[in-house]
């Protein structure tokens, strides 16, 4: 069991919300989506792969099979699902400090939401409602989301460069090549294994891979 795979961490948080309030949250989500500037803090936090908020109505929980009895739930729920690079603390702290009002807006109608500042009650709220990841697969454990974005940009730029400049005379080729380097200069970061996220996670990894202490 681990919430961590390579450079990524998976976080599931599910919080109760009064069913007759969910329309407000849905409205807030809609407004945020149609007005991208409300999400620019989130987008600028480059450790985040993505974050998703979903309302699950109290009678809408999936069942594995029609024979599974329906649950009688008092609340609807808000599922927050995110994948990010780094540790839980780093992520939750970045959230609180970078976009406290955004968090408060999204969680405001959830039961017993404490507000994002001060930090400890918020930490406790998230921890209390977090569901650990039973199984987590990561196809590119060495890549952070920034690494993936950079790789895509470089690949595209190289292909274009090849098409446009491959047959140019040396002088022009060099100019184009330098321009390519300049355009891509923020995408050349090395990709190497992750800094360890926690000593306990690292111990688990080492035991699993049978790396001697």
């Amino acid at each position: 069991m681990s919430n961590i795979a390579g450079k990524a961490y998976a976080m599931n948080v599910i919080t109760p919300i009064r069913w007759y309030m969910t329309w407000i949250n849905k409205l807030i989500f809609k407004t945020a989506l149609s007005n991208p500037s409300t999400l620019k803090g989130l987008v600028t936090l480059s450790l985040i792969h993505y974050a998703r908020w979903v309302i699950i109505p109290r009678d809408g929980f999936p069942r594995l099979d029609p024979s599974q009895p329906k649950e009688e739930l008092n609340y609807s729920y808000m599922l927050f699902f995110s994948n990010f690079n780094g540790s839980w603390d780093q992520y939750v702290d970045s959230f609180t400090f970078a976009i406290p009002s955004g968090l408060d807006l999204f969680w405001k109608w959830n039961v017993r939401y404490p507000k994002s500042v001060p930090l400890t009650p918020f930490h406790n709220y998230i921890r209390h409602n977090q569901i650990d990841t039973a199984h987590y697969y990561n196809a590119y454990p060495m890549a952070s989301s920034n690494d993936v974005k950079s790789a895509q940009k470089i690949k595209k730029a190289l292909i274009n460069f090849n098409t446009a400049s491959a047959d140019k005379p040396p002088e022009e080729f060099l100019n184009d090549y330098n321009k390519l380097l300049n355009d891509m200069q923020h995408h050349f970061g090395d990709m190497k294994p992750t800094p360890i996220v926690s000593l306990s996670a690292d111990a688990v990894r080492k035991r699993y891979l049978q790396i001697p202490e």
Partner: peptide, 19 residues
Amino acid sequence: EFVQQQWINYANDFKEGND
């Protein structure tokens, strides 16, 4: 520890990968 690990020996926050 954060500065030492994340900013000196790693650079995702600066979008510089593991540089």
